[in-house]
Design a protein around this nucleic acid. Structure first.
Length: 329
DNA sequence: TAGGCCATCTGGTCCT
DNA sequence: AGGACCAGATGGCCTA
């Protein structure tokens, strides 16, 4: 793509040498007011092109060689008006689109192991942590190990910046109680207790001694409230907070533990390689409770899940539903 | 002050 | 034709 913008210096020269641009710039100011945003150089650059085309026509009159391709029309006042109107509309749409994208990203932040209103993860770190989180949970489900300890934290922090790693590790040091408090009182566990007050610093090799968070701390942190009732049967409906509506959408697409990540040699997910969703899990209801799944390790919480639900079909498809809810807006 | 992050504007491309 | 999506450019804000 060629660079469509006039540099400030070029612009200044244009303005000083071409009175017609003054007029155009004043209409830029109008656009700025209409749009409520800063004026940029694009329109000016575009008009510069038009101006060039006018020059070309003049040159052609002067007998110089014609340039191939369609002639550019002069930027008449009517065309300029239409162009401006189109651009203003397009800008508004683009802003709306980006706001939607940011909202989805915010929803994603809320279901990450460390969510803080005051200390937001950057966009790129949010996506990296989300990738790691899904990967780590999948590993936990596949291996039947507990979601605690250095290994889990290591997986979560893979490829993250040092500050984000500190944030995550700090969050995972909190027990479920703290997370409940955080959820209900909108407190910030990171800045309030884990990081700020203790100057906690996570080093990937050589982690501080346990206890870290466990599976419960992760699941209770998740929304919708289904997760809380899953890990704590006493957590009935009246405990469900109102910060997010319950997810009522379809539980698709289901995730496959082994099929979703191409792993590198060191075991980390290889995002360069495409993966395919495998749809071998039938939709299941989470409402009933007919006993427990004996495949979970003894350190895992006991889940009330239907008997027809197998080990590898249960929690990660809930995670999938969660992700589905996030991105289905 | 440099660098990171972000919001916005913009033109190009693809799709309906 | 118009909208969605994308990537480049730009300037503002913040922090080390």
């Amino acid at each position: 793509m060629t660079k469509p913008y006039a540099k400030p210096k070029e612009m200044a020269e244009l303005i000083s040498s071409q009175p017609w641009i003054d007029e155009a710039l004043s209409s830029q100011d109008e656009m700025k007011e209409e749009d409520g945003q800063q004026a940029s150089y694009g329109l000016l650059a575009g008009m510069n092109e038009d101006h060039d085309s006018i020059e070309e026509e003049e040159e052609e009159d002067g007998g110089k060689p014609k340039r191939r391709g369609p002639k550019k029309k002069k930027m008449t006042k009517a065309r300029l008006e239409r162009f401006r109107a189109r651009r203003v509309k397009a800008n508004a749409r683009e802003r709306t689109r980006m706001h939607g994208l940011n909202d989805a990203l915010d929803n994603l932040r809320r279901v990450m192991p460390c969510y803080s209103k005051t200390q937001k993860l950057s966009k790129i770190e949010t996506l990296r942590l989300a990738r790691n989180y899904i990967w780590a949970l999948s590993e936990v489900l596949e291996s039947g190990q507990t979601a605690e300890g250095k290994g889990f934290v290591d997986m979560l922090c893979k490829g993250l910046s040092q500050p984000t790693s500190n944030l995550v590790a700090g969050c995972l040091q909190l027990g479920p109680q703290s997370l409940f408090m955080e959820k209900h009182e909108e407190k910030n566990p990171v800045s309030d207790s884990a990081v700020s007050s203790h100057s906690f610093s996570y080093q990937s090799p050589g982690l501080p001694s346990p206890p870290y968070g466990n599976m419960e701390t992760h699941l209770v942190h998740l929304k919708p409230p289904t997760f809380k009732s899953l890990v704590d049967p006493s957590f009935s409906n009246h405990h469900q907070d109102c910060t997010s509506p319950p997810y009522e959408g379809p539980l698709t697409p289901p995730l496959s533990i082994s099929g979703n990540f191409s792993l590198k040699q060191d075991g980390s997910p290889d995002l360069e390689k495409p993966y395919s969703f495998m749809t071998h899990y039938p939709p299941v209801s989470l409402g009933s409770s007919h006993g427990h799944n004996s495949h979970f390790s003894t350190t895992m919480p006991r889940y009330d899940i239907p008997v027809d639900m197998t080990y590898d079909s249960y929690p990660h498809h809930v995670v999938a539903a969660q992700l589905n809810a996030i991105f289905s807006e």
